[in-house]
Design a protein around this nucleic acid. Structure first.
Lengths: 230, 230
DNA sequence: TATAATCTTTAAAAACTTATTAAAGCCGAC
DNA sequence: GTCGGCTTTAATAAGTTTTTAAAGATTATA
């Protein structure tokens, strides 16, 4: 999998925001959201999303103001305006404010997704964004399926990589066996529960100094596992 | 002084092409144009415009074909599709073909100009000079389809050249098999996946000292390949 | 402490992915 | 048309990963 892109959804219509958020998450985007125009700027400045989906008519603060403020504050990523009023003069104003694109409501969700996927493709060349995760004395490089331990590179298989990624996303939390299997094999798989153990064993051999007394990948009997860091 | 941007207008409607050309010239763009779908590709490849305004329904060659061909041949600048039929499914297809944006006819010229001015603003930073790429002890000259290794010239076939170019653009990143095939053969090609292996093998024979233990062109099992430099 | 439930480990089979070879197809230059 | 180089495919080999089964270990608790 490629880098995960972050999208901010700024939309006050609960229904639409829900739809957008869920669909985009399902498409593999990292989504942050707010209905509040005033809160939007903080959210965006703090999270630096790759794309902002911005409703143009918000209660409180106007989309145009938000857009302008963001640009003034040096925000350079993509801002896509969502608007119902598609008068030409508005579009020109929006472009002048630094909007990268607009979509007119109501829009087809499939088209929006195709558009975002497309924009992101052009983005991904210029991105250096590493999502290297560090834990203990190790570095996990999910893109290359590898682990650096004491300066030594250890290759991970696809499943090991996927499992470790999930653990690292949910560090210090007890992870339910079923949830984990769900993440690794998806909805209706009929893989044996023992198979998971197998992968855990192999992962432990790769990451633990003493696989018999795991320091990181601990089992929580009756529930699942817990990835302990610090 | 700012750079002058070059726009190619590919449109068979004499009237509209005239309007576009004159207005864009008046706005300070460098405009090249043709009404002929078949001639469009040559025009674009030779002039490398920053933006292509492409009518989607041309006599002779379809806009979709032109777009696909351009992308496959490594054209990376902006392609804006102009279309009267704005069915959702078409938009999705267009995005998949690598269109950067679309405008629906009839469009307001002021809006188009505002849009182009805006796009150009985001463009102005990036531009490369020579396209000779060096890696390891080699030089890749994509224009002449050749490789200099230890002072010796090695000829590359068109596909080898295209593949290597893509690898060198995405050095040290894991490249998905499908993405690579997409780049090499375009959107809906039905080339066998083994065919790619074949080309990889031959490319390795040309660039690697020891093709069996590749130093540069490494495979990432389950995903694709990675071109490793340094 | 015995028993049941759960987890770990091992080894081997099954499934899958990539590499290689050889042959056929395609296309342009002559 | 024929030749030669490039591309594609098919078949097969080689190498890895994933899964399963079965046995062993551990833990909880009756």
């Amino acid at each position: 999998m490629n880098k995960t892109f972050k999208i901010a959804v700024i939309e006050d219509d609960e229904n639409l925001r829900f739809l957008l958020t869920h669909r985009l998450k399902a498409e593999g985007y990292d989504v942050i959201e707010t209905s509040d125009g005033a809160a939007a700027e903080t959210l965006i400045n703090e999270n630096q999303p790759d794309i902002v989906l911005l409703d143009w008519m918000l209660p409180g603060k106007q989309g145009s103001d938000i857009c302008n403020d963001l640009r003034v504050n040096g925000f350079e990523n993509m801002i896509i305006m969502m608007t119902a009023k598609a008068q030409d003069v508005d579009k020109i104003e929006a472009y002048n404010l630094g909007v990268s694109d607009y979509v007119t409501k109501p829009f087809n969700m499939d088209v929006l997704v195709a558009m975002l996927d497309n924009k992101v493709k052009f983005l991904s060349n210029s991105n250096t964004g590493s999502d290297i995760q560090r834990f203990g004395d190790m570095e996990h490089h999910p893109n290359t399926h590898s682990l650096i331990k004491n300066g030594k590179k250890i290759e991970l298989t696809i499943l090991e990589n996927r499992i470790l990624l999930y653990f690292l996303k949910n560090v210090n939390q007890v992870i339910n066996r079923d949830d984990l299997m769900m993440v690794v094999w998806g909805y209706n798989s009929d893989v044996n529960t023992r198979t998971l153990d197998m992968h855990i064993v192999r992962l432990r051999k790769k990451i633990e100094d003493n696989p018999d007394g795991p320091k990181y990948l601990q089992t929580v009997r009756g529930i699942g596992y817990k990835f302990v860091v610090d």
